[in-house]
């Protein structure tokens, strides 16, 4: 209910602002909606949203998997940490634009380059978060697992992984928002489709209704995924904590 109200308030503010500023710079909601419907009818909206989502999914999965593994290793093995730390600092502070441009130069304007560039941008935050998680592992539980001769795989799954879960969730959450932001830049600079590409086209044509139509549908998709996937996942992970309280 409150969400609906907040949405209505947003549309009202937008409408009023459009009346004040003028249609040329900020078209009113109906104008944007009609462009949105036209794009949906032609199928272009879904092709572009689908392309963007596929890139997000691939880059996110890749970065989470590799970043978590590296972070865990760095948290557990001090040699790995000392070797990896300078690279981590470098990657953490490297602007996304540099990574994307270099990837396109070295690997061409390809899908691989785009996804790799997005993944590399997200990677270091996953590493840092999981490293913290691995450092915070309880040695007492490790000893328990060893004393009871739990096989490695079982111990990792049932003793280690649940301790890392909040860190994985945090890395996923911050990582996803980072990927949402970067994917459009990568598409804008070197992909022939996707929301970022369409926004680029709209910018060149100064087609503001098209620009807003894509921006808003993208924002809508992000909102839906965050509410329907990320938040329930987090709740599930910490169920035992709620019951314990």
């Amino acid at each position: 209910m409150l969400r609906l109200l907040s949405f209505a308030l947003f549309v009202a503010t937008w409408w009023i602002a459009s009346l004040v500023i003028g249609d040329a710079k900020l078209p009113a909601p109906p104008a944007v909606l009609s462009v949105l419907i036209a794009e949906a009818r032609s199928g272009a909206l879904f092709v572009n949203l689908g392309a963007t989502l596929a890139r997000v999914a691939l880059a996110f999965t890749l970065a989470m998997a590799i970043g978590s593994a590296i972070g865990y290793l760095m948290g557990r093995v001090s040699l790995a940490n000392r070797l990896g730390d300078p690279w981590l600092i470098l990657l953490l502070n490297l602007p996304a634009l540099v990574v994307i441009v270099l990837a396109y130069i070295w690997a061409g304007l390809t899908e691989v380059a785009a996804i790799a560039a997005i993944a590399i941008n997200k990677l270091p935050t996953a590493v840092v978060t999981l490293r913290e998680g691995a450092r915070a592992l309880d040695p007492a539980l490790d000893e328990m697992a060893t004393a009871f001769a739990l096989p490695r795989g079982r111990a990792f799954r049932h003793v280690i992984l649940p301790q890392l879960a909040p860190y994985i969730a945090a890395a996923a959450r911050s990582g996803l928002s980072l990927v949402w932001k970067i994917v459009l830049v990568a598409e804008y600079l070197g992909r022939p489709n996707g929301v970022g590409f369409e926004i680029g086209v709209a910018f060149q044509l100064f087609d503001i209704p098209l620009l807003l139509a894509y921006s808003l549908s993208f924002a809508g998709v992000v909102l839906v995924i965050e509410t329907l996937m990320v938040q329930p996942f987090e709740t599930r992970l910490t169920r035992w904590r709620l019951r314990a309280a």
Binding site: A140, E143, M144, A147, F148, R154, H158, R241
Partner: peptide
């Protein structure tokens, strides 16, 4: 030789129920 150990602190896994804790070991 199979070892059973009771530590000074219980050292249970907070994310598993009582029965699941026992069955893990």
């Amino acid at each position: 030789m199979r070892l059973g150990m009771v530590f000074q602190e219980p050292r249970l896994l907070p994310w598993r129920t009582v029965e699941e804790n026992v069955r893990l070991a």
